[in-house]
């Protein structure tokens, strides 16, 4: 293990390491801690300039209550779910298929198609913006969740295919050959042999895509507007204009908007990190 395990060091080193950890963490999360502290303060603290002292009262319920009951925030959150979940399902489904095709079969153009997906996944959004917006408008899907979902599925298929294909490549190929010798149809091999083996990849990818899509902002403001279809990343700006300069409420709103992907991460940590670091180890 590198660096040298701390338990092999002196007692003093161990103690100072243990003491340093929480300090470092606090420094690292300082901006976030600040926002969390803001979100439980009363308005009066801000008018009195008491930004960092002891809060004059604990207003957790009042502030977060306002976010949930006196703003469009719940609508935006719901929109985010209605955009994110179908995208996850769609992108994972499509890329499982493409990944299977590219990972198992040898045919001309295999690598070319694979590289097309990879390259497409890296392009700047702006080169797609004008035509995609145009396409969405002319399909009557502007300012609908469906318009966003369709685009997200298409774009995420790039990354997901990369992921799935590499995962399938690492599966024991003998299993598939054995199945073929048995005369099992190809689609049944996909369904009954490959898919069960891919469960960890499916989980990892689902968690990752959930976070990516939940956090999307650019496409949300290009393809939607207003509380009918906008997800929470875009909605938070209008929330902030409703409570402008009221930092305690804006802070609470931001924290609420950030919770679902954070919760997803802590619940599915193993899958999340497995997905993110795929390829970091060879």
């Amino acid at each position: 293990m590198f660096p040298t395990p701390i338990e092999k060091r002196s007692r003093g080193a161990q103690i100072s390491y243990q003491a340093l950890l929480p300090v470092a963490l606090l420094m690292w999360l300082l901006p976030l801690v600040a926002v969390a502290l803001f979100s439980i303060r009363p308005l009066a603290d801000f008018t009195n300039g008491n930004y960092w002292g002891v809060p004059s009262s604990f207003e957790f319920f009042t502030n977060y209550g306002k976010v949930f009951f006196e703003s469009d925030m719940p609508r935006y959150m719901l929109n985010s779910f209605l955009i994110t979940v179908p995208t996850v399902v769609g992108a994972v489904a499509l890329s499982t298929m493409t990944g299977f095709a590219l990972g198992i079969y040898r045919f001309r153009g295999n690598l070319l198609i694979f590289f097309m997906f990879i390259a497409g996944n890296f392009v700047p959004f702006q080169i797609l913006m004008v035509p995609v917006r145009d396409l969405t408008v002319s399909a009557g899907l502007y300012d609908t969740k469906m318009g966003l979902v369709l685009f997200h599925i298409a774009f995420q298929t790039g990354f997901c295919t990369l992921f799935m294909r590499n995962f399938i490549r690492a599966l024991p190929f003998e299993l598939i050959e054995a199945a073929r010798v048995e005369g099992i149809a190809e689609w049944r091999i996909f369904w009954f042999v490959v898919l069960p083996l891919m469960k960890p990849a499916l989980a990892a990818l689902a968690v990752l895509i959930f976070t990516f899509i939940w956090n999307d902002y650019f496409w949300a403001i290009v393809l939607t507007q207003g509380p009918d279809a906008q997800p929470v990343t875009a909605g938070i700006t209008s929330f902030n204009s409703q409570f402008v300069a009221q930092y305690h409420l804006m802070s609470a709103g931001s924290i609420v908007a950030a919770i679902p992907p954070v919760a997803m991460f802590f619940l599915m940590q193993r899958h999340f990190i497995a997905g993110l670091t795929l390829g970091a180890v060879k």
Binding site: R133, V137, Y142, D143, Q225, G226, D228, T237, S238, S241
Partner: peptide
């Protein structure tokens, strides 16, 4: 009724009037 942020509306109105 859809209420949008007043300063954001300045960059959204054209989109709104053309797209939807």
């Amino acid at each position: 009724l859809e209420v949008v942020d007043r300063d954001a509306w300045k960059s959204q109105i054209r989109n709104a009037l053309t797209a939807n």
